Simulated assay, not measured.
Amino acid sequence: MNIETLRTYCLNKLGATESFPFGNDTLVFKVANKVFLLTSLENPNSFNAKCNPEKAVLLREKYPEIVPGYHMNKKHWNTVYYDGSLSEKLLKELVDDSYQLVYEGLPKSLKQEIENL
């Protein structure tokens, strides 16, 4: 997976938007103004994704490329380094899980707005 594939995959999520709230280097993907993924354009071989805390621990134990989230709440966020050693299927699953966790935490009214887009 490369940065363009990651970007396209994130933007294909229902209601997903992209922005640069932390400067020109950090690309942030949100749903209903809530962050679900961040990546650096300067070092585009990693991203931060939200994760269920129990699953985050298991992933970190199994994959050395998955570590506690850099500059994030380490209980709920992972930094994922992708240099070709992790499958694209796993990378997409991590993006999907992150999006779903954020989406599920939205108020019902916001979910309905997004679904009506």
Score class of each variant (00 low, 15 high):
N48Q: 07
D97K: 11
S98L: 06
S46R: 12
V31K: 01
E113C: 09
K50Q: 01
S87M: 04
G69F: 09
R60G: 04
Y82F: 07
G105A: 11
H76E: 06
Y82M: 02
M1A: 11
I3T: 15
V57Y: 11
V35Q: 06
N73L: 07
G69W: 08
D96V: 02
M1D: 12
P64G: 15
A16S: 07
L117D: 13
Y63K: 12
Y103D: 02
V28T: 07
A56G: 04
S87G: 01
P107Y: 15
S87C: 02
E93T: 00
V102G: 01
G69C: 09
L27W: 06
P68Q: 13
Y82C: 00
S109H: 15
K62S: 08
L91M: 05
Y70L: 05
S19N: 15
E113Y: 13
G23W: 13
K30C: 01
K50N: 00
P21G: 08
K34E: 00
D96T: 05
C51T: 09
F20C: 09
F29Q: 00
Q100N: 13
K30R: 05
D96K: 06
T26W: 13
F36K: 02
V35S: 01
H76T: 02
N48M: 04
N48H: 05
L94F: 03
D96Q: 10
I3M: 14
L37E: 06
E61F: 14
L41K: 13
A16C: 06
K89G: 03
P64R: 15
S87K: 08
F20V: 10
P53H: 06
P107E: 14
G23F: 11
S109E: 14
V35G: 01
K13I: 04
V80E: 01
E93H: 05
N78D: 01
K55W: 12
N12A: 10
K75Q: 06
C10N: 11
V95R: 03
